[in-house]
Amino acid sequence: MIEFSTYNVIFFSISSFTLISAISVGLVNSLMRSLFFLILTFIGVAGLFILLSADFIAIAQLLIYAGSISILLLFAVMLTPESSTNNGNSKYFLPGILIGIIFTYLMVALVTIFQFNQLSGIHLKKLDFDNTIASIGELLLGKYIIAFELASILLLFALIGAISIVRSNESDFLISLNNKDKK
């Protein structure tokens, strides 16, 4: 039984906003419009994090996903040669639907099977989350230091991968080296 409280109203309005924009990502024909709705989805998820009193995570979500990943996707869309505003017809329509159904089933199964930490917004209100960022910092540099260092190596690999994508052919590099020597 869902009780009618302010927190629930806020939660359901934010989550419905997120869900509607997430569905629009798939339904809209134009790639850019679906990117726009994807950004709205990210913002909605940030709102959900705020509702869980995780303000640092919400801001990180806003900064990394809505601010950076969206730019990455945007340039990725601009890299595509034959994209137009009309992307309605795709040969991956049926497999896409199939994968979507499988993932939806998996998500629902996960949510129903596992026992999550059952703290809703009302209970979180009683806990005093004063300074989440400081406690995250203490955990990150204390208990989870290995993960913290490994993250930097992961980011390094991503950077090297990006360089090798752009400089895919070695000859290009050699030519530029030769030009440099001539100068």
């Binding site: 900064l63 950076s68 730019i71 990455l72 890299l79 991503a158 994508i165 752009v166």
Partner: peptide
């Protein structure tokens, strides 16, 4: 452009 965006994402996460 993609390389710059990827570099931006990496440094943002950092």
């Amino acid at each position: 452009y993609f390389l710059y965006a990827l570099g931006f994402v990496i440094f943002d996460v950092e």
